[in-house]
């Protein structure tokens, strides 16, 4: 029987181990690793298998040492194989991973107009105070826009140059686009008896030249409160609750005397905002003439009314310097609200 020298056996093993580790180290992909596995560890004709056959040719006393060397070499090659397999699998995994920093698929979000959002906020706060929102026509008659509001036939507010009158047939009662939402309050009072808490809101129209603070079409929110025993203290208290809720914190309100045909006494309402008094709108006790015009007895009930310019408070709230921007309908503007 041919014998094999232990030295040459070990040298053969070392060479195999070095070749296998080198081959596995440079294998670039799963195929290359598999080819190396077959070459070195193949069950039928792998080089390790060939060397294993030489093990039987070692002299008897050399066999334990030869076996130990063989096992060490086999384990080293197996470890290299495992490392290589892990490496190429990892490479594949890396290729499939997502660049999670890419943006998601855009969802087009709709937006409510900032004027609508402001109106809703006012409605919500006033709703908590028991005021219901009411609505009425924008094309109005003289009675609701003027007479019932104690704006007499000679009052400058009725001037054709200060209103949008409709061109209608001769003899008909002239109609106009309402210049205030108080018209709706008259309509509600004509239909219903006190107690009454309403906010009327919507578009109103006045022929102002459009500039940064004026637009011939704008929005008003007007409140009306009619109950027996209502005083200006109730008006101030309700407006303070509103201001505190709308602006946040404990906000104070200030009344300055003013003049409106349909309230008496009439006041301008200032609210404290950022350490300053900001003019928020007009208010007052409902004029007895208005109560009488809708069939209420001014000695039985009293009430207060107030009005807010929606564009003004929305402009302030959102930092809009030019109220015409509210009507440009630019999506780049609308998307910010």
């Amino acid at each position: 029987m041919a014998t094999v020298a232990l030295d040459s056996f070990v040298a053969e093993l070392d060479r195999l181990q070095a070749d296998a580790v080198a081959a596995l180290a440079v294998a670039a992909d799963a195929d290359a690793v598999e080819r190396a596995r077959v070459e070195f560890l193949g069950a039928k004709s792998g080089r390790l298998k060939a060397i294993q056959k030489l093990l039987g040719g070692l002299a008897g006393p050399d066999k334990p040492a030869g076996g130990r060397h063989f096992n060490e070499a086999k384990q080293a090659v197996a470890a290299a194989l495992e490392a290589a397999q892990g490496r190429v699998a990892g490479a594949a995994a890396t290729a499939e991973a997502l660049d999670v920093t890419l943006p998601g698929e855009p969802v087009r979000l709709g937006h409510l107009h900032p004027i609508t959002q402001t109106i809703r906020r006012v409605q919500e706060i006033m709703g908590r105070l028991g005021f219901e929102s009411v609505d009425g026509p924008e094309v109005e008659d003289q009675w609701h826009n003027f007479d019932a509001l104690a704006i007499g036939a000679e009052h400058p507010a009725r001037d054709p140059l200060d209103n949008f009158y409709l061109a209608v047939a001769q003899g008909a009662d002239p109609l106009l686009l309402r210049s205030q939402t108080s018209t709706v309050q008259i309509r509600v009072m004509e239909r219903r008896k006190p107690p009454l808490r309403i906010v009327s809101l919507g578009r109103v129209y006045r022929p102002d030249t459009a500039d940064a603070t004026h637009y011939p079409m704008f929005h008003q929110v007007e409140g009306l409160f009619v109950e027996p025993g209502t005083t200006m203290a109730h008006l101030k208290s309700v407006l303070r609750l509103f201001a505190s809720s709308f602006l946040g914190g404990d906000v104070h309100v200030r009344f300055r005397p003013s003049f409106f045909p349909f309230t008496e006494p009439s006041v301008e309402v200032d609210m404290e905002w950022g350490g300053r008094w900001i003019e928020m709108g007009g208010a007052g006790m409902v004029d007895p003439a208005v109560l009488a015009a809708v069939g209420y007895d001014p000695d039985e009930v009293s009430g207060f009314a107030f009005g807010l310019g929606v564009e003004r408070i929305a402009a302030r709230r959102y930092g809009v310097a030019d109220i015409r921007d509210f009507y440009r309908n630019d999506v780049r503007f609308l998307e910010q609200f």
């Binding site: 709709g110 409510l112 949008f164 509210f326 009507y327 309908n329 999506v331 609308l334």
Partner: peptide
């Protein structure tokens, strides 16, 4: 996904 506009009544 629509944005609310406010256009002139007239």
């Amino acid at each position: 996904g629509f944005c609310e506009a406010m256009t002139r009544s007239v």
